[in-house]
């Protein structure tokens, strides 16, 4: 690469340095509120969904990355398994976490293609037991079709992460917990992991 004959590169170095130091400092200073976290995440997801220059797979991958950095999958896995968590061996726990995370992102990703100009409204924020916070939101699709989505967040290493999503009153954690409970008592961890593995290789509908 040849060096352009101007003082631009030096300027750019300076800007980079500022950007990097800001990036390093930001997480310590910011300590964003749960509403901010949900707002920022929704904004990022909507931006990807609106970006027509990306194909479906690319959009899906980007949305997954945004979800990964905002959801606490460790806590989610333990909450969903509840009392059954201890009945898994260490290897099973690792596999469960991996499969469950992949299953959730598949299910979420399948909906990426269904985007129809929805907007997200942050309605309110409420303190819960155990220091958790619920952020109530509404996906605005126009009139009758609005969807109420509540996010429950818990602080981990000074960062608010999502530990449950409640869609129109139906909690994801409670719903999966009941399914996994049923499966664990009819076939145990082997059957649960088998079912998750089958879901993992199943192609998404419409693909």
């Amino acid at each position: 690469m040849t060096k352009p004959a101007s003082n631009r590169p030096r300027q750019r170095h300076w800007l980079t340095a500022v950007a990097v130091s800001l990036a390093l400092v930001a997480p310590c200073v910011a300590s964003r509120s749960p509403s901010d976290v949900v707002d920022a995440m929704s904004g990022q997801v909507l931006k990807v969904l609106r970006d027509q220059s990306l194909d479906v797979d690319k959009r899906r991958a980007e949305v997954e990355q945004i979800i990964y950095s905002n959801v606490d999958f460790d806590t989610l896995s333990r909450l969903v398994m509840a009392r059954n968590w201890r009945r898994l061996s260490d290897e099973q726990k690792v596999e469960f976490k991996r499969l469950f995370k992949s299953h959730l992102s598949d299910t979420y990703g399948d909906n990426v293609d269904n985007y129809r100009n929805e907007k997200v409204q942050i309605l309110s924020q409420r303190d819960e037991k155990r220091g958790d916070v619920t952020v109530k939101t509404k996906i605005v699709r126009g009139g009758t079709d609005d969807v109420l989505v509540d996010y429950r967040l818990r602080k981990k290493n000074d960062e608010w992460l999502i530990i449950d999503v409640v869609i129109e009153g139906v909690s994801l954690v409670a719903n999966f917990r009941s399914q996994f409970q049923d499966i664990m008592s009819n076939g145990g961890a082997d059957r649960l992991l088998k079912l998750l593995r089958e879901k993992d290789i199943e192609p998404p509908p419409g693909a």
């Binding site: 399948d110 129109e168 009153g169 139906v170 719903n175 399914q179 649960l192």
Partner: peptide, 27 residues
């Protein structure tokens, strides 16, 4: 689309519906 998403998400569709119905009614 919602039905398809529910079926894809559920590991046991019967238990999925039973729980979702009960939660939704309570809400």
């Amino acid at each position: 689309e919602d039905v398809a998403a529910a079926k894809a998400a559920a590991l046991d569709y019967y238990v999925f519906l039973r729980n979702a119905y009960s939660q939704r009614r309570q809400a």
